[in-house]
Design a protein around this nucleic acid. Structure first.
Lengths: 211, 211, 211, 211
DNA sequence: AATGAATGAGGATTCATTCAT
DNA sequence: AATGAATGAATCCTCATTCAT
């Protein structure tokens, strides 16, 4: 009994420490990038000694992996695709990007750090694809196919369209990181959703031109 | 006279050396990323000594800046926005992304290296914004405003739409780097243009829903 | 009364713990050598926590000293030199190296670790000399002198000869550690004694050449 | 032509630097042992920067390997076993150990460092066996067999005897390192040769007992 | 102008030791 | 008395940069 409690407490302490360190790492990585970040500084920000980091993570690289796992775990959950009452594709998309933006708002630093490393690190890239991109793409693809079949959206290529939508979001994240002031302000006050939905569903063409 | 010629020749030689070194740097940066690339390896690839690099560039960082300048210089030229006969916005967009894709095809590795660094390097980010992003955005914004005024495209917010289109392209580059196989194959054989134009101009909504 | 018993019990417990830890240390030192052995691993093998080690030994170095003391204590006991009936020097030598080989067989790993450290650690070297080498040398020297006086062995320089015999044994230990397969097999099956005695007493020379 | 000279000079410079660094390493290793020796100190003794060490050796471990190779190269050369006129085994042995002692005198530090590490480092042990021990043993064995056949020495087991002689020398080296004052003084003034030869050839036994 | 050896600051990682529980 | 998490000094190694030739 007591043992069980002790073990549980211990596990919670370990998890908390890991979080504490990952938070610090995320902050420093985002600020300086993975390579310019030093374990010394991460330790300082996490308010632990350098040695302690290595009691919880095998290497500096493992911090990055830990962060990616975290990002993966807090992504859009699969259930959302299976909810009832999301017949209206517009509404669904709105919900989706709202969630997504909330998520990005909460994890911008981490995403920034992770993305940067992903761009030049083969191994990270593969992890990211497997854990985050592919699961999402295949689920969304599936959803789109159904919508197309049911005539709720235009007859589009579900595979490609999925990728365009993903790209749009990825690109927006990129521009936020780049620091575009307009996007930044709209995004922080959550004013992008409507305009974005319109862009995606109505396109640029005038109605007449529409084919 | 003679002096002028000599000076000119000298300048050409210097420029050539710089190119030679930047080419090598681009190759190595793309392969390993900025931080994992060593001056030693760049020198080896450029077939010069490490010391020589420093005769032409002040630092390793300057190589990155040099590359970004290069990328900026070979971007879509401003003239394209001023050409006559590009009244048809669809056609114009098609042309634009075709050029863009050709450019990306030729510079993917460099873009990869530069982007990665941009994400976590304040200074690089500012340079990139000033030299590349902002000029393009303002020109495109201008173009879109005119198109909207003339009723050639829907009544959209030109500023935001410009950013969405930029984001879409940036995101596609991101997904290419991530290695999405579908995009990769379509992109290499230049099959994305039409489908992308359709996505952008017609949106996902069925025509009736279009409001 | 009770107090005395308690104290005695306590001392026995402490001694037992020390043994337990030294055993573990011996095992790990032998496997990895002193420097590559970590207190963490020693603790794991001893099935105690790292902290506990430091309740019984002041430092990692003290473990080594403890081991050497142990080795010293189990060396050839001085009494052997005083036993009656060991008039025959050959027989005596045979007995001696048999004991010695038995001892080495039981402590090879420890000796390996201790010797390695002795070679490059001044302090250890001094301890080893004082505690082990010198006592043995002086006793053996004494013994040899008597044998020479009594005409039981040739007129040799007792001091030097003692050192040659010590060296021979030390060197054999060295070769065993080095892993010479021939010595190893003969040594394990205790077949070296006779041949060694012959080498030491008869030399290589043919009898006629003997002078 | 010039090129050849330049290359040769370069190679000489490199070899010299390597020597310079190995000398320093030998000194520090011998003093403190491999593990306690720091690259910082080696650099200081060699009067170069730490970085320079790594221009010539891949790792601290490589310094050790480099030292062992050096030791191997300066060992007793195989030719000695093939010289004419060495019929007299005593004389031959005398020559051999004189050479050996000279060698040890010149390389004591290195041997000390190498031996210590050999005792606890599997890889080093294997290298040492292959490069130094085995070649010597097999050559000496061969020599002894012939001597035995020709009746120049007693009918001894050549294999074992070779090992005894090797052990004797190894052990003497060990005792020198341990710091035995008697051996030290005799060895430095080269007074051991005769006494050692006598020990090896005549044994301890009185002539009558010689069976 | 080119070279490449030398430099040394800097950084990730290890591990003996401590100490609060 | 035992624990084991926290510590941080110490160390090997890398690599951008310099500079004598």
């Amino acid at each position: 009994m007591v043992n069980q409690k002790t073990v549980a407490r211990r596990e919670r302490r370990i998890a908390a420490r890991k979080e504490q360190i990952l938070d610090a790492a995320a902050q420093v990585f985002a600020e300086k990038g993975f390579h310019r970040a030093t374990t010394k500084e991460i330790a300082a920000v996490a308010d632990v000694s350098e040695g302690t980091i290595y009691n919880y993570f095998g290497s500096k690289n493992d911090l990055l992996i830990g962060m990616m796992t975290r990002v993966g775990d807090s992504q859009v959950p699969p259930e959302i695709f299976e909810q009832e009452g999301l017949d209206d594709a517009r509404e669904f998309y709105t919900t989706l990007i709202q969630r997504r933006h909330t998520f990005v708002r909460q994890n911008k630093s981490i995403l920034q750090a992770v993305l940067s490393e992903i761009l030049t690190n083969q191994e990270m890239r593969e992890r990211y694809n497997e854990q985050i991109v592919e699961p999402f793409l295949s689920m969304f693809e599936q959803y789109l196919s159904v919508q197309v079949e049911q005539g709720r959206i235009r007859q589009v290529d579900a595979e490609l369209t999925t990728r365009y939508l993903f790209a749009l979001n990825l690109g927006l994240l990129g521009m936020l990181i780049l620091g575009d002031p307009l996007l930044q302000s709209k995004w922080e006050s959550d004013e992008l959703t409507e305009s974005l939905t319109e862009f995606v569903f109505d396109g640029l063409g005038t109605r007449e031109t529409g084919e």
